[in-house]
Design a protein around this nucleic acid. Structure first.
Length: 682
DNA sequence: AACATCGCTATTTTT
DNA sequence: TAGCGATGTT
């Protein structure tokens, strides 16, 4: 991707310190004393409080190298991250430091990938012999089915909302039975039952099942503790309860636990991450060493000053103050604008002017609070002829054809997979329409058997047309044949091709009305083949493994692909871990940043951290903007500058922050206190 | 099965 | 305002 991560490209701290015993001098040379202390901390629990831009990935990598140099076998090392991207980067860096062979023996992956690995190996001990992964779309489908079965009008509870609440509950290690909310309790129980019937685990279940294994199966626990003697965790502030418990169990035998994180960058509380884990590390793990990395190699002094000021407004944190290793640089700028259109136009023109002066597009990022803010920016950037790319949005894996192909493959591994079967039952059209399909599902539900079995006996199910019955049983026969072949397949890519031919997926593509759409679908299918080939090269040997890795999106290159020279446009959440020379932090208004929802739910400190993350993305230019009026939900209302602007600059709002809006409304507030909240939603 | 229309809602999102 | 899903129309 266009953005390089952390310390790879920035000046190294100058002073070399004495090399630690066991690790080659060149590796440790160039670490500053804080980093060196972290890397060479005594074996045992270590908490590294890594401020933004302080070189944490480097420390993590060198710690592993240090362990290996001190005699730890590489395969005794487990490093967990939150995203595939972080895992990939860690693997690459490890290969450079340890050499490819030793690096390949370490286990580096996301929490979910690690848990899946453990479950595939030891799941039988829990009576979990075979399962497929339930991805986001399946989760939603399950929630929808549950609401339908409970006969709850969807107007009252959106499937997505039920799913989110179940997920949050699981991520807080709560139990369905204990939920006070009647609908949530019943919905959650039914959801779990739905998944169980389909032998699926959702992403959250992966963590929970792995934890159960560790807690309830001592033999497995001992085996895992012996295998993974050294545990390292990245982004520790983002761990949720199940993840924390897994780590604790793994490390409780040997106490070699090295966690790196920054409580000031904890921005995922709303999905179950629990900052108290990083705050309480020293109490949780006796004899822990704590190291603070406060030297920042990313941003100039003025930017860090704003960041430090802002975050100091939060209480109950591990206090840290970032010091720049670079020069003074320019102060961050605050630019008021009349409305979201002029805000976007200002940013686009400012970027265009700097491009004209020699800057490159990839030096810039525009960071927003919400996805709906993107539109005016897209329009303005296009008008100013600035090349940009919107990061985020739907993934490659959300595309219809990709999901279709994956559904077929899942059926080869598990012919009873209901979600997959229903998805492709009439894709391409085989005369198995909605009415007949409903009958088959009803028949299965009534008889308490898998829908797949009703497909087999479709001819005797009442209300199913002969054509549909023939289609249903024919489909099953085709899948059986393919499944038998899949079990023995060595060339996975060939198997995928063969499957698509056998089910005539081409017919589905031909249904697209426009040639462009057809081409896009074909490209999507080809991309699946590419990814499959890639994964096969990287060691996927069975169709099941291929599917696992596809579902965990190990190859999602939405951000990795097509770097190019483009200004990036993304949400603040998506910007975490990235950096650019020039950053625009837009929409800095009360009720947007912080969002009204955050104000209502008393989670402003978390948004302050989000703002902090945004500020600390900037290397040498930071421009914060706000609009005096903003159109939301179809009506325009006056806004107030974000309290974070006052906090970061330490100033009362200067007069120039009070632009006279065209309407004459929305006079800025003077005074040094954060402005009173006003609802902008009308 | 494809398309129009109504009514409702409206942060952040990885695996 | 716009996008989604459910419902109604062709």
């Amino acid at each position: 991707m266009a953005v390089r991560n952390s310390s790879s490209s920035r000046p190294r701290p100058r002073r070399a310190t004495a090399p630690a015993r066991g690790l080659e001098p060149p590796a440790l040379a160039g670490l500053n004393p804080e980093q060196l202390a972290a890397v060479t901390a005594p074996l045992g629990p270590v908490l590294v409080l890594a401020g933004a831009g302080s070189g944490k990935t480097r420390v993590l990598t060198l710690r592993i190298a240090h362990l290996v140099a001190s005699g730890a076998p590489p395969d005794s090392i487990l490093a967990v991250t939150f995203t595939n991207k972080a895992a990939t980067e860690m693997r690459e860096r490890l290969a450079r430091v340890l050499g490819p062979d030793a690096a390949a023996r370490t286990v580096v992956g996301t929490f979910h990938a690690f848990c899946l690995r453990v479950l595939r190996e030891h799941g039988a001990a829990l009576g979990l012999p075979a399962f497929t992964l339930c991805d986001a779309a399946d989760q939603l489908a399950a929630a929808r089915a549950v609401l339908r079965d409970l006969r709850v009008p969807e107007q009252h509870v959106a499937p997505a909302q039920l799913q989110a609440r179940i997920s949050l509950g699981k991520n807080r290690l709560q139990r369905a039975e204990d939920q006070d909310d009647d609908l949530l309790r019943r919905g959650w129980l039914a959801y779990d039952e739905h998944l169980r019937r389909n032998r699926q685990l959702d992403f959250d279940d992966l963590l929970l099942a792995a934890l159960r294994l560790l807690e309830e199966r001592p033999a497995v626990r001992r085996a895992l503790q012996a295998r993974y003697r050294h545990v390292l965790v990245d982004e520790y502030q983002d761990t949720n309860r199940p993840q924390y418990e897994i780590v604790r169990r793994l490390a409780e035998k040997h106490h070699s636990l090295f966690v790196v994180g920054d409580d000031d960058q904890a921005i995922y509380g709303w999905r179950g991450a629990d900052v108290t884990r990083i705050l309480g590390f020293a109490q949780d793990f006796k004899g822990a060493t704590t190291v603070r990395l406060q030297t920042n190699y990313r941003s100039t002094a003025g930017i860090l000053e704003a960041a430090n000021r802002l975050i100091a407004c939060n209480v109950g944190r591990h206090e840290k103050t970032l010091r720049t290793a670079l020069g003074d640089g320019d102060s961050p700028k605050v630019v008021p604008q009349a409305d979201e259109e002029t805000e976007a136009a200002f940013v686009a023109q400012d970027i265009a002017a700097r491009l004209a002066a020699g800057a490159r597009p990839a030096e810039f990022a525009v960071l927003l609070r919400t996805a709906v803010q993107t539109r005016p920016f897209e329009t303005a950037l296009r008008a100013a002829q600035v090349p940009y790319r919107l990061v985020g949005g739907p993934s490659f894996y959300d595309r219809k054809e990709v999901r279709d192909v994956l559904a077929y493959l899942r059926l080869l591994v598990d012919p009873d997979d209901e979600a997959a079967l229903l998805r492709i039952a009439n894709t391409p059209p085989r005369g198995l329409g909605k009415a007949s399909l409903d009958r088959l599902v009803a028949d299965a539900t009534a008889a308490g058997r898998p829908v797949a079995e009703s497909f087999d006996r479709a001819a005797s199910v009442e209300g199913v047309t002969p054509v549909a019955a023939e289609a249903a049983s024919g489909l099953r026969a085709t899948l059986r044949t393919l499944g038998a072949r899949a079990a023995a397949a060595t060339d996975l890519v060939a198997l995928v091709r063969e499957t698509l031919n056998a089910v005539d997926y081409r017919a589905e593509i031909e249904r697209c009305p426009t040639p462009e759409e057809r081409a896009a679908r074909i490209a999507g299918v080809n991309e699946v083949l590419n990814v499959a080939e890639n994964l096969q090269r990287r060691g996927a040997t069975s169709l099941r493994e291929l599917l696992d890795r596809l579902t965990l999106k190990e190859q999602d290159d939405r951000t990795a692909e097509a770097p190019g020279e483009r200004v990036l446009l993304m949400t603040l959440h998506a910007a975490k871990g990235l950096e650019w020379p020039r950053v625009y932090l837009v929409g800095c208004e009360e009720t947007l940043l912080p969002h009204q929802k955050s104000i209502d739910t008393d989670t402003v400190p978390e948004v302050r951290r989000l703002m902090y993350v945004g500020i600390t993305r900037a290397q040498r230019q930071l421009t914060m903007t706000f609009a005096a009026t903003r159109s939301r939900y179809g009506s325009r209302s006056p806004t107030l500058p974000s309290r974070f602007l006052y906090e970061a600059t330490g100033q009362a709002p200067p007069p120039q922050w009070r632009p006279a809006p065209a309407t004459g409304e929305g006079r800025g507030r003077r005074g040094k206190k954060p402005p009173a909240q006003r609802s902008a939603s009308g």
